[in-house]
Each structure stands twice: as C-alpha cells, then as structure tokens.
Simulated assay, not measured.
Amino acid sequence: MTLEGSLTHEEYCAHLLAETDRFRQIVRTADLSVTVPTCPDWTLAELARHVGGAHRWAGAIVARRATAPVDPADVPDGKGPAGEDAAALDAWLAEGVEGTVAALRQAGPDAEVWTWAPPVQRAGFWARRMAHETVIHRADAALTAGAPFDLPAEVAADCLEEWLQICELPAAMERFAGREDADGDPLFGPGRTIHLHATDAPAGLNAEWVLDLTGSAPSHRRAHEKAAVALRGPLTDVLRVVHRRLPTDSDRVEVLGDRALLDRWLAWATFQ
C-alpha cells in the first residue's frame, strides 16, 4: 500500500500556501463565533486553531526529522491565540504555514520522518496531507461563512484519491472496525461497488473512481464502470460528498442506484 500523489512536492507546498491564504481570507472577514455546520463541535475560530495547530505540528515533525510522534504540547505556539481576534488568528495562521512549508522545502519529499500512515515514513506525506487537510477545512469555513468554494481540478482529484488511499490503510480499517454492521446490513459483500463520476473534469484528467467493496476490505481504481450505485456531479461537489461536507441528497449531485450503499460507505469512511 502506498500513498502516492499526482502532484510534485513543490506543487503540494505551493497549494498548501494558497489554500491557507484562501482559508485566512474567510477568517479575516467572517463571524468567528459561529458554529461550523460540518464540524458542530467547533466555532469558526476553533476550526482556525485546529488548522493552524495541524500545520505547526506537521512542520515540527518535519523540521526535527522526528521518527516518533511529536507531542502537540511540545510544538511552540501550537494552540494559537485564544478568543476570536481575527487579526491575531490570521497572523498566527500565516506564520505557521510559512514555517511548515519552509521545513518541507528544506527537507524534500524523501526525508525520513514519522507519519501515522506506515509504511510511508517520509516528509512528502505531510506536504500532501496538510494541503488536503486545508482544502477540506476551507470547505467547512466557506460553508460556515456563505463563501464560494472552488478548487483546481487536479487538486480536487488528488484530494479525493488521497482519501480513498487512506481508507484502505490498516490503521484506518482498525479505526473503522465494526461500523459496517452497525445497522445490521454489512457494507462489504458481493456486488457492492460504488462509481464516483466527476462530470466536469477537464480533458486529460481521469476523474472517475470505482470503489470495490466486494471483499473484506475496500479497494479502488480509476475507471469508468457500471456499479451498484453511482455518484455524479461536478468534481468539487463529488469531493465534498465523499468527505461528508455535502449531503447525498443535494441538488448539486445525482445518485443513481443503491443510495443506501453509498450512505453506508460514507458513514463508515469518516474519522468523525
């Protein structure tokens, strides 16, 4: 099992900076006391501290060439400013991501560091992970603030691909264990396949996936195939559905076939 992405290390670093900048634009102008609908345990200010804390934690791992987990309490200024001071949060976010990207660029993609996704133990994992972590939380922030959410197609496709790869990791399978039978209807079994189809992908970008749940563990492939259920729509909306940032009954997407299977998959493949 690998977690290979389709972008270069420098492209992930650049997208991490760009996504954080767009996240910061929302932080600077929105009501930071509002609850985030897709992360209801957090206000927008708390979401910002989560994002900035993740950046600094990953940056510390890379900068220290850590071969074991770093305690978040040992990350300088990892918690960020308290309260809802937009200017203070904005400056803290900017400083944190700039430090993290500097560490990632200095290390290069192949530097050996700890990750939570063995056997991948290199700095490139963190460049990709932090870029896409920021993408999804910008979607949270945009929804909260009523701001638009768009994304370069190649970034959206790689973000979706990364999530499917993560769901196949033994660590994820262990965390999700037991959920497939929670409603009395097993997730895995014969004929259980899901087709994800982006309807607006530019020429040359393969933005179709088949999730194969016919065995005892999930697998996926980039392909156009008939499946038990299909989710169709613009790429960024398919991505948001997969990450549970958009409901399957949204008028922005179309579900054809066994909707219950898609809903069971989405309930299973989440860290919430």
Rank of each mutant, 00 (worst) to 15 (best):
D31V: 00
S33H: 13
S33P: 00
S33I: 00
S33Q: 11
T35G: 02
T35L: 11
T35K: 10
V36H: 11
P37L: 00
P37G: 10
P37I: 11
T38I: 10
T38Y: 11
C39Q: 12
P40E: 10
A45E: 09
E46L: 12
L47S: 06
R49G: 01
A54T: 14
H55A: 14
A58P: 08
G59R: 12
G59Q: 07
A60M: 07
A60G: 01
A63T: 08
T67S: 12
A68C: 09
D71I: 10
D71A: 15
P72C: 04
D74L: 14
V75P: 03
P76T: 11
D77V: 03
D77P: 07
G78D: 03
K79C: 00
A82E: 14
A82Q: 10
G83A: 13
A86N: 08
A86M: 13
A87I: 03
A87D: 15
L93I: 08
A94C: 08
A94R: 13
E95Y: 01
G96Q: 00
T100P: 02
V101W: 13
V101H: 14
L104G: 05
L104N: 04
A107Q: 04
A107E: 12
A107M: 07
G108Q: 05
P109F: 01
P109I: 03
D110R: 08
E112F: 00
E112Y: 00
V113I: 05
W114D: 07
W114N: 04
W116E: 07
P119S: 07
V120F: 07
R122V: 01
R122W: 01
A123S: 15
A123V: 04
G124W: 05
F125M: 00
W126M: 09
W126T: 02
A127Q: 03
A127C: 09
R129W: 11
R129H: 11
R129T: 08
M130A: 00
H132G: 01
H132N: 14
H132R: 00
H132Q: 06
T134I: 03
T134F: 02
V135Y: 06
R138K: 12
R138L: 13
A139K: 03
D140V: 15
A141I: 12
A141S: 14
A142N: 10
